[in-house]
Amino acid sequence: MSIYPVTARPVAEAGSMALVYAGKRLPLQVLRCAAGYYLGTFDDGPVSRESVEYFPTHDAASHALKTGAWTQRTHP
């Protein structure tokens, strides 16, 4: 089993949860809720939370999105 750093995986451009569960191909973006900032999709309102993590700042979430240093959720 090979172990790669999180940043070695391709940076996602669209939300896989939004595609699978809502049938929508939407770009990933930084969103905010009471728990903090997260990576998700938006279309006339929030559609999916894609990241497992919540980030303390917009900059931290933006950095994770740009570098791929985040964990994709596998189910809603």
Rank of each mutant, 00 (worst) to 15 (best):
Y54D: 13
R25L: 15
A61Q: 06
D44L: 03
L39M: 10
L31G: 00
K24M: 13
A22L: 04
L19V: 09
T74I: 06
H75M: 13
T71V: 05
G36V: 04
A61W: 14
G23F: 02
P10D: 15
S48Y: 06
Y21E: 13
D59R: 11
E13L: 12
H58K: 09
L31S: 10
S62C: 08
L31E: 04
V30R: 10
A18V: 03
E53W: 08
K24Q: 08
A35N: 15
A8P: 10
D43F: 06
Y37F: 15
K66G: 12
A34I: 05
S2F: 15
A60V: 05
R9S: 08
E53Q: 12
Y37E: 06
Y4H: 10
Y54V: 11
T41S: 11
E53C: 00
K24E: 04
I3E: 09
A22C: 10
E53S: 07
A64N: 06
R9I: 00
E13H: 14
L28I: 15
L65Y: 03
S51Y: 06
Q72G: 01
S62W: 14
V30Y: 09
A18P: 05
V20A: 13
A12L: 10
A22I: 00
F42M: 10
V52L: 13
Y4P: 03
I3Y: 12
G36N: 05
V30E: 04
A12K: 13
S2W: 13
G36R: 13
P76M: 15
L31W: 02
S62T: 10
D59Y: 06
P27W: 08
H75N: 06
H75D: 08
A14H: 07
V11C: 01
P56N: 13
G23N: 07
A64K: 13
V11Y: 01
C33G: 12
A60M: 11
S16T: 13
L26M: 05
G45Q: 14
A69H: 11
D43Q: 13
T71W: 04
S2P: 00
V47S: 02
G36D: 12
R49K: 14
P76E: 15
G40W: 10
G36H: 12
